[in-house]
């Protein structure tokens, strides 16, 4: 997994709340192999019309090189589709700043190296307003947990475990493999105490 330490990059203001995962990537694209890249599917129906022609949405015009996205509350709500994170990642987004996130989305994001940075609603509004006025790169510092844009600065919150995972690029599986013996012991005890855990077969 890629590490995340600091990022200075163009940011796209997406002044929407409840940006659900069905919008982030409509279900009809989820049977596609990842190898072809999911970036084009990001917010597809906001960006392209029936014929696949660009509607001139900000991600295809002013913010086509954005690596950071700023949105309103409850970003990534909805389904568990990790493809929503693939679409953001393949488009180039490495950090989303919002006042709150869908729970499974935030977990999926971190597992792919994408930072979900939680700010206060006031700070989100301030950032959205600034970005609407002037194009200015945003600097996100995960070590210091700060967001800076010109003379504006605010802090952000992230679960400490997720922060460490992102900073170090840790993969869960490597950690789990260190506990193989404990898992085997636990399994035996659990199946012994609650035998119905192993389903009876017809």
């Amino acid at each position: 997994m890629d590490k995340f330490t600091t990022l200075s990059a163009p940011a796209c203001p997406l002044g929407l709340e409840n940006v659900d995962t069905d919008q982030l990537i409509p279900a009809r694209f989820m049977s596609r192999p990842r190898s072809a890249g999911y970036g084009r599917f990001l917010l597809h129906d906001l960006r392209f019309d029936e014929a696949g022609t660009s509607k001139g949405f900000v991600l295809d015009t002013r913010y086509s090189t954005a690596k950071i996205m700023v949105a309103r509350r409850n970003f990534g709500t909805g389904s568990s589709r990790e493809a929503a994170v693939y679409a953001l990642w393949d488009f180039g987004i490495r950090c989303v700043i919002a006042p709150s996130f869908g729970d499974i989305f935030a977990s999926n994001a971190v597992k792919n190296g994408l930072l979900p940075a939680t700010v206060t609603p006031e700070d989100a509004e301030a950032l959205l307003q600034r970005l609407g006025e002037v194009d200015q790169p945003i600097t996100v510092d995960l070590e210091a947990q700060t967001i800076t844009s010109g003379n504006f600065q605010c802090g952000f919150v992230i679960d400490p475990v997720r922060r460490l995972q992102l900073l170090n690029g840790w993969d869960d599986l490597d950690l789990t493999r260190r506990h193989t013996d404990e898992i085997a012991t636990f399994r035996a005890a659990r199946l012994g105490a609650e035998p119905w855990v192993m389903p009876v077969t017809e």
Binding site: S80, R81, A83, V85, I104, S107, D172, L173, H179, I183
Partner: peptide
């Protein structure tokens, strides 16, 4: 609870999950 694809892969390989 619902999980994402990375977690599905982790469960397939280990029958466990890290959670807070």
């Amino acid at each position: 609870f619902g999980i994402g694809a990375s977690e599905v892969a982790h469960v397939l390989m280990t029958q466990t999950l890290w959670q807070k």
